[in-house]
């Protein structure tokens, strides 16, 4: 079995993995990083979105072996010293989650969006989130949260 090294939320791991092991199963089942959930089989829902070397990817559609040598950030790695990331705070303040199952992926996708567009308008936010499905909120509050999170990220990122 291939041996891979991967850094997840700042911690280095070395694992032997089956080639077919999905990155999301490496995170959840092997490493116990269950903050990242799985919502579909077809890259549609985006619940499993993580940052891989700084860019958003759907961890259900990346093999663990493809992530060899890379740095992964999940929703569990966003807070620093117990201080929420501005995007996490914005989701809380704007009531941008209900059941919360899509939230890890949604927050990661939002942070990725702000990486490339620090001051997105509503249309840009909606485009940036088209790969992340939410069944609870109707997206209005998510759009508001991303706008707010983007503003706060401009000021202050942990």
């Amino acid at each position: 079995m291939p041996r891979i090294t991967v850094t997840v939320d700042g911690v280095g791991y070395e694992e032997e993995v089956e080639p077919r092991l999905l990155l999301v199963h490496l995170l959840r089942d092997t490493l116990g990083k269950t903050g990242t959930p799985i919502g579909c089989d077809t890259t549609n829902c985006g619940a499993c979105t993580v940052l891989m070397d700084g860019k958003s990817v759907k961890s259900c559609s990346v093999l663990a072996v493809q992530a060899d040598g890379s740095e992964i950030t999940t929703v569990e790695g966003l807070s620093a010293n117990g201080v929420w990331h501005p995007m996490q705070r914005a989701f809380h303040e704007e009531h941008a989650l209900q059941c919360g199952f899509c939230t890890p992926g949604m927050i990661i996708a939002a942070i990725d969006l702000v990486r490339t567009d620090p001051d997105p308008d509503d249309a840009t936010i909606r485009e940036g989130l088209e790969g992340n499905l939410c069944r609870c909120t109707g997206y209005c509050n998510i759009v508001r949260a991303v706008r707010r999170g983007a503003q706060e990220m401009g000021v202050n990122t942990p």
């Binding site: 116990g32 959930p37 799985i38 929703v75 303040e93 009531h95 919360g100």
Partner: peptide
């Protein structure tokens, strides 16, 4: 009121059934 439920949901400290081992 902002929700008490949010803290664990936005930080990934959730207990979905599939998380249980």
């Amino acid at each position: 009121r902002r929700r008490k439920e949010d803290a664990r949901l936005i930080t990934g400290r959730t207990q979905w059934t599939d998380n249980i081992h």
